Amino acid sequence: MTKNVIFYASFQLFKINFRPKSIVLKGVTNASIRRITSLNPMGFHFFITTSKFIRLQRLHITTPKDSPNTDGIQISSSDQVRVSRSRIETGDDCIGILQGSTRLSINKVTCGPGHGISVGSLGKNEDEEDAKGVQVKNCTLRGTTNGIRIKTFPFKPNVIPIKAFGFLFKDIVMKSVQNPIIIDQEYCGGGHSCVNGPSKIRLSDIFFHNIGGSTTSSQAINIKCSSAVPCQNVHLHNINLIGLKGPLSASCINAKINFFGLQVPTLKC
């Protein structure tokens, strides 16, 4: 019988320049990690980079909601990573999908507290690669600051623009989520300086299907794309979000949106 394994690291709330990651997979092929509890690391729980054919199953990832930079799983420059049947409670992104991520699958993950499931941020560093072919399905987000989020930096010198395309977010349940659906191409977080000018990251072929639940904010959908390279081929199919504190609004700029089925709240571009 497989026994659960618990990784524990004491957590201290103070500022340091580098917080060690608990588990790092770098340059790994054909690996499976399952039935692990990761508890209170000082930095990321899992960091996966330049790897392929990785399976993460039945994980329990937990840190306090006020713990900074404790992302659950960060994935970059990796192909065919699958995360399934896991619970992630953290103070930052539950799952962060970074540049160079291709053919990822996230299925039956419960996230919260935390910052939600994020693509990006993209366009921050030199020599980034395209992100493409990501599926997030059958997931539940509880009390997170964001639900599904795509974020890119505004224009930065010496950063070669990349493309991010082929994203499917399907059968997602939001429970008291502050910002359920976000595309933010003016993101400027993490203490980085931003240059005035629109993002050059091209976003396209993004599908939001069967997303419902509740939000604590007044704005359920916020799609803010770049004026230089507007979002193309964004689909909203059967969106049903209710406000716990009153009526909801939805907004979008610089995006070509295709609507199908129920749309609550109504989004006009």
Rank of each mutant, 00 (worst) to 15 (best):
T62P: 06
G43C: 07
V24R: 05
R55F: 04
D130H: 11
G133L: 11
T62F: 08
S67L: 11
K26H: 12
T49V: 06
N17K: 13
T90G: 14
P68Q: 04
L104A: 11
S10V: 05
N69A: 14
L122R: 02
K3F: 06
S101V: 10
G123R: 00
H45P: 13
S121T: 05
L122C: 02
Q99F: 06
Q74Y: 12
C94S: 13
D130P: 00
G100L: 10
D93Q: 07
V28G: 13
N40A: 01
G27V: 05
T102C: 11
A9G: 15
F11Q: 15
P68G: 07
R58A: 10
R142W: 08
Y8A: 14
P113A: 03
G72N: 08
F44S: 15
K108Q: 15
K108R: 15
G112W: 01
K21G: 10
Q74E: 15
V109H: 09
G116V: 07
L122K: 06
R103G: 09
S118N: 05
D71M: 14
S84E: 01
N30T: 03
T63F: 05
K137M: 14
G43E: 02
A9T: 13
P113W: 00
V81K: 03
T62C: 08
V24G: 07
R87D: 08
T63V: 12
C94L: 11
V134E: 03
S78A: 08
N17W: 00
G116N: 03
I88E: 07
F18H: 12
L141W: 00
N30H: 07
S51R: 01
V81H: 00
S101P: 02
I75V: 13
I73Y: 01
S22L: 15
V136C: 03
R19S: 12
I16F: 11
D93N: 12
F47L: 13
V109M: 09
K15W: 04
N107F: 14
V24D: 06
Q99M: 12
C139S: 13
E128R: 00
G116K: 02
